[in-house]
Write a protein that binds this DNA or RNA. Structure first.
Length: 595
RNA sequence: CGGGGCGUGGCGCAGCUUGGUAGCGCGGGUGCUUUGGGAGCACUAGGUCGCAGGUUCGAAUCCUGUCGCCCCGACCA
């Protein structure tokens, strides 16, 4: 490509709208342009990156026998009603853009494609002899995110690779899942990225085992916990661990503790010289189910711990036949006062009476009481006395209410991973760029996708699904690879491998030499950008650094002696090379970088 | 959804408190000089001041409404 016919459109200053460095560099480098919140145009440079990532994915997936196809974006509501996800994806979380056609039929823009692909599979697959089979696509996805942010990190329209595999047994699914995991590791390393694989919650996609692939970065939206040795790694949504030891309470007292206005764990500890591990705090939630019923939930947890809402959601969801579509904290506001009578906010104990739920409330009339392990293990603890301005010492043994004992806490840095273990957890931020799931028979069951097994009996097809956020991966790569001057693309996914810069295009000697080398590189299938603009060399260098092309060949003063320079973007090291050796030298240096 | 901030040429911003008919830097165009890290001088083009009402002789500025964008928050008991 020639810079004169391939407008770079770089910006001199950082756009005000971007906060994190990768987003700033994408805008500044002219890779993307914002059209609306969470909606971006991919400019030619960006598209080249996307295409490189796509072809790395293609190569690896085809090598394990996956078949590429392309599915529609516009899905009929009826299809999603069959899988039972229409309600929760539109009315519930509202993540699915939806609309009516001129016939007044409902449609949605696809946030994911299980429904469509499973329907296809149900029509095509009839026998175990056709299995296993895996389809995938690289497609635009639409999700009306609660808060789109950070450019391509969390956008409402984005490009994703999504794959779906079909199997005749759970065993076969597991084997393929592992094959896919290996392929994913290769894909990310072939993109020049460092990733961590972590155990994950399956979320609304459903299924049993699932694993996320994370690029570690400060700006990541996920918390991941892992051991130094790598023996354990999990998303905080999923991580299980042993909390640090509490400081036991020695003396039992029946007396109420006067704690005026001390509504938080922090205040109670500070004013009364109590350790936060000696407190059980109570947090109230309201669950809403798909049949509109509303369940008040009371969660008890040790004062120094925090509630993991994902674990809590899953616990409540699996406890009931109907499905939970929303879980929110009950705060003191008009809504809660309408349903609760004289609730002593800030001083609630685990044993607060069911009778505080008003009789005319449309909530269920008794609390679902849950105790996290961290609190359940305490013999005695300080907790709310259910009376404004008072706490007391209490124990679960002395309470008459029924509690469900469960793990609903967030793991923390410093936790042990097993009771007798010596390894503790480290916490870091991560950007999720890939996720693989063993779906099992959830979708095949709902969408009636069956096959005849060896015994001639009909059975639901076993399924797996596998995603990679292509556009997110590109931005995560920048988050991981940049410096003060701009992007430092890994060569594997860089828009160009080398930037050819004649410092003065008006010098016919330079111009001719540049043209010759340009042709030579192109003829050897090297992605080269020739900066043939008639501008000062400084601008070309700045642009080159900004858009992050891994190598630069400068044709300047020494061109009179047929000498050029080969410079690495990352190290800035420059070597002088004779014109006749430049191809060979470049191939040698770039090969080092590819490996 | 709650809280905070911001909407003024392509980009970054000033002007608003105290109304008087829009300015700076970068970028664009032309010319001359310059030419290995975002050059200098001169000239020049380019703006519904987010939108809609209102107050006023007069509104970017004051009032009301509305739309959009960005940031923080789903642990407050």
């Amino acid at each position: 490509m020639r810079a004169t016919s391939y407008p770079l459109a770089t910006l001199r200053e950082n756009p005000a709208e971007a906060e994190i460095v990768s987003h700033q560099l994408l805008l500044k480098g002219g890779f993307i342009r914002r059209v609306s919140s969470g909606i971006y145009s991919y400019m030619p440079l960006m598209l080249r990156v996307i295409e490189k990532i796509s072809s790395i994915i293609d190569k690896e997936l085809k090598s394990i026998g996956c078949n590429k196809l392309l599915l529609p974006l516009l899905h009929p509501a009826e299809l999603w009603e069959r899988s039972g996800r229409w309600e929760s994806y539109t009315a519930g979380e509202g993540i699915m853009f939806n609309l009516l056609d001129r016939q007044n039929r409902g449609f949605g823009l696809a946030p994911t494609h299980e429904e469509v692909i499973t329907t296809i599979a149900s029509e095509i697959i009839t026998s175990y002899k056709q299995l296993p089979i895996c389809y995938y696509q690289i497609q635009t996805k639409f999700r009306d995110e609660i808060r789109p942010r950070f450019g391509l990190m969390r956008s409402r329209e984005f490009i994703m690779k999504d794959g779906y595999s079909f199997h005749s047994s759970e065993e076969d699914l597991k084997q393929f899942y592992e094959k896919m995991e290996t392929a994913y590791i290769k894909i990310f390393s072939n993109c020049g990225l460092e990733t961590v694989g972590v155990d994950a919650d399956s979320g609304s996609i459903g299924g049993s085992a699932s694993k996320e692939f994370m690029v570690t970065a400060e700006s990541g939206e996920d918390s991941i916990l892992f051991t130094e040795s790598g023996s354990y790694a999990a998303n905080i949504e999923k991580a299980n661990s042993i909390p640090t030891k509490e400081i036991p309470i020695k003396v039992q007292s029946q007396d109420l503790l006067f704690t005026p206005n001390q509504k938080s764990v922090y205040e109670v500890c500070k004013q009364n010289k109590i350790d936060s591990t000696q407190i059980v705090k109570v947090i109230l939630f309201l669950g809403v189910f798909d049949d509109d019923s509303q369940l008040p939930i009371l969660v008890c947890i040790r004062g120094d711990q925090t509630v993991n809402e994902v674990k809590l959601f899953n616990l409540v969801d699996t406890k009931y036949e109907k499905s939970l579509i929303n879980l929110s904290i009950i705060e003191r506001n008009i809504e809660s006062e309408k349903n609760l009578d004289n609730l002593p906010f800030g001083f609630i104990g685990p044993d607060i009476n069911d009778s505080i739920i008003k009789s005319d409330s449309n909530w269920q009339k008794s609390w679902l009481r849950i105790v996290d392990h961290s609190a359940n293990n305490l013999n005695l603890f300080f907790t709310g006395a259910n009376k404004i301005d008072y706490h007391k010492i209490n124990s679960f043994n002395s309470m008459s209410q029924k509690f469900i004992n469960a793990d609903v806490r967030n793991s923390k840095q410093g936790d042990y991973i097993t009771i007798k273990g010596t390894e503790t957890l480290i916490e870091k931020r991560g950007i999720e760029i890939g996720h693989i799931f063993q779906l099992g028979q959830k979708y095949s069951h709902k969408l009636n996708a069956k096959f005849s097994n060896k015994e001639g009996k009909l059975e639901n097809i076993w399924m797996g699904c596998y995603g990679i956020g292509v556009t997110r991966l590109a931005q995560a790569a920048i988050e991981q690879n940049h410096d003060d001057d701009g992007i430092c693309w890994p060569i594997h996914i860089a828009p160009f491998e080398v930037n050819l810069i004649p410092t003065n295009i008006k010098d016919s000697n330079q111009k001719n030499l540049a043209e010759e080398i340009y042709l030579e590189l192109k003829n050897n299938d090297i992605d080269v950008l020739l900066d043939d603009r008639d501008i000062r060399a400084g601008i070309k260098f700045k642009d080159s650094d900004l858009i992050g092309i891994p190598f630069r060949i400068v044709i300047g003063r020494d061109s009179i002696n047929n000498e050029v320079e080969l410079i690495s973007r990352v190290t800035k090291k420059s070597i002088k090379v004779h014109r006749r050796n430049i191809l060979e030298k470049f191939l040698y240096e770039s090969k080092l970088m590819y490996n």
